[in-house]
Computed example of a mutant assay.
Amino acid sequence: MSNEREIGDADLTDITGGDEARARALRKTLQKLARSSEAGAPLQEMAREVLSGRIGLREAMRINAYAEALGERVAEGRRAYEALPPEELERQQEEARRYLDAQREEIEDERRGPASGPPGGPSRHDGGGRRL
């Protein structure tokens, strides 16, 4: 997919109910699937097709090979999720919340554009030591 056009977060917000952070997380997950040999050929192909914009995610789910492969992965994940002890479940849920918060912050940082000051944000002082 190196020279191909790739969809952006906005192309997935219909799937995520308008949640930009979840759309970004979904796009990043699709990118990982597209690169992962562990995902298996059908999921890799589906991810590449969706990321290229040749097919929408909803449309992809109507293709038997993709739906079956994804269904198997979801079932595996569900079994693993249900087997988690409560403390681990809570830890993973908190980790997921932090991840989505980080995606939201990343989106906000992009909207703000490049910082006009030193790393860590704009300075509150000018060169003469006077507060702006």
Rank of each mutant, 00 (worst) to 15 (best):
L12V: 02
A96S: 14
D9P: 06
M46H: 06
K28W: 07
E106M: 08
K28P: 00
S116C: 13
G56T: 12
A34H: 03
R91Q: 10
D126M: 11
L43E: 00
P42Y: 02
L30V: 02
A67T: 05
R91K: 11
E82G: 07
R35M: 08
G121K: 12
G120Q: 03
A47P: 06
A10I: 10
G128S: 13
G18N: 02
E20D: 05
R58T: 09
L26G: 01
L33I: 04
H125A: 15
Q44D: 04
R54H: 15
A115Q: 12
E90K: 13
Q31K: 09
P86K: 05
A39G: 06
L33Q: 00
G18I: 01
D19M: 03
E88T: 12
A75L: 06
L12I: 03
T13P: 01
A60G: 06
E4N: 15
A47T: 06
R104D: 07
K28T: 08
L33F: 08
E38W: 09
A80C: 03
Q93V: 06
E72W: 08
G127T: 14
L30P: 02
E108L: 14
P119L: 07
K28I: 09
N64T: 15
G8V: 04
R54Y: 11
L89T: 10
G71T: 02
R5T: 14
R130Q: 14
P42W: 02
S116N: 15
L89Q: 14
R98D: 11
E72D: 12
G77C: 04
A23F: 01
A25D: 05
T16P: 01
S116K: 15
L51W: 05
A23S: 04
K28N: 13
D11F: 00
I7N: 01
L100C: 07
A39V: 04
P119N: 08
D9I: 13
A10R: 12
V50S: 05
E72V: 13
R112G: 10
E88V: 09
E105R: 13
D101M: 14
A65H: 08
R5E: 12
N3C: 08
R112N: 13
A67I: 02
V50I: 15
A75T: 05
G17C: 00
G128A: 14
G17P: 01
E82N: 13
S2G: 12
A102L: 07
D126C: 12
G117C: 07
R78K: 13
R97C: 01
